[in-house]
Structure formats: C-alpha cells, structure tokens
Computed example of a mutant assay.
Amino acid sequence: MRNLLILLATAPLLMAQGLPRPYCGYGEGLAALREAAREASLPVPGIMEGRARGEAVVTTLASATATFAACGCPRLAELTGEALRVAQSAPSEASIARLSQVFSQARFRMQLAREHAERAGCR
C-alpha cells in the first residue's frame, strides 16, 4: 500500500520529466513503432502484397498512436499520427513505385518519432 501511495504522489513529477504514465503500455507503443518501420522497410514484391503490408502498417501505427496518446505523450502521438496519415494511402495505391514512395515517407516520419522518443521521452 505504501508503494502505491508513493507512486501516486510522484506520478505528476514523473510526467513533468517526460516519463509516461505508469502502466500505460509505452514500451508496447515503441515496439509497435519499430515493427511498423520494419514492415515499411521491406521491398515491395507486388501490388497486392504491398497493399496488404500497407494495411498492416496502418493498423500498427494506429495502435501506437493510441498508446502514446493514452500514456500522456502528446508530441510522440502527434509524430506517430503523421506517419499514420502518410501510410493510410498505401492500401489503395495503384503502383509498386507509388507504394515504395509511401513506405519511404512513412519510414521517415517514423524515424522522426523514434528520435523524439529517444531524445525527449514521453512529451
């Protein structure tokens, strides 16, 4: 009980230091961000496979964005959301070249989000 009271008392201080809310799944959000970047970095073998991968990336990024928002990390959620908005066009692209471009742009934005997480934590 004492540990819980200490945690509750220090939670506002932890949040001010750029740390996520306790028990919010922040690590899962970072893992989802890494997984989406890995999926987006694979070569596009065909249009149907690329579209399916695009749907998977969109789903993973949506999950990461929601996780960061729930953790109280507005800037990280915003950066991940930017990658999500770029990736949302992938499932409907009509060419492999355009799919590759979308994945490249999404990866760039995911990299910005990961760098922000490393540099500033949960902010």
Results as ranks from 00 to 15, higher is better:
P43K: 09
E49H: 04
Y26D: 00
L4F: 11
C71W: 01
T10H: 09
G121M: 10
R109I: 06
A11Y: 04
P43T: 06
E118H: 12
E93Y: 01
L7H: 03
A32K: 13
A69M: 07
T59L: 11
M110R: 09
P91K: 11
A64Y: 06
E28T: 13
L61K: 06
A62C: 01
V102H: 03
C73H: 02
S92L: 10
E28K: 09
Q101P: 00
R75D: 14
A56R: 15
V57K: 04
M15A: 15
E118C: 01
L13F: 11
E78K: 07
G50C: 04
R114T: 08
Q17H: 02
P12G: 06
Q111D: 14
V44K: 11
L5M: 12
G121D: 12
P22W: 08
E55N: 07
T80D: 01
M110C: 14
G72M: 07
T60F: 09
R2N: 11
L61M: 03
A31C: 01
A70W: 00
E118V: 03
P22E: 02
S100H: 03
E93R: 15
E28C: 01
C122H: 00
S95L: 08
S95K: 08
R2G: 03
E49S: 14
F103E: 02
Y23I: 04
Q88K: 15
L5P: 00
L112W: 00
C122F: 02
M1W: 08
A117L: 07
L30V: 12
G29L: 03
A32R: 10
R107A: 10
A36R: 03
L42D: 11
L33V: 09
R85M: 08
L61I: 05
V57H: 01
G18K: 02
A106M: 10
V57F: 05
A69I: 01
T10M: 13
H116T: 04
G81T: 12
Y23Q: 05
T10K: 09
P45M: 07
G50P: 04
A83G: 14
G27I: 08
S63C: 00
Q101H: 05
R119S: 15
A83E: 09
M15H: 13
S100E: 15
E115P: 00
R123F: 14
R53M: 08
L14Q: 12
E115F: 05
A77D: 07
A97L: 13
R21P: 00
A52F: 12
G81S: 10
M1H: 14
A56M: 06
M1A: 15
Y23H: 03
M110S: 06
L84V: 03
L7V: 03
L14R: 15
P45D: 07
R114F: 09
A32T: 00
T10G: 02
C71S: 07
L42V: 11
A52M: 15
L5W: 10
A62L: 09
A117T: 11
E49R: 14
T59D: 09
E39D: 04
T80F: 01
P22K: 02
L8D: 10
G54E: 07
S100A: 14
E115A: 12
E78Y: 11
A117P: 05
A113R: 06
A87G: 06
A64M: 02
G121Q: 10
T65R: 15
L14M: 14
R123H: 12
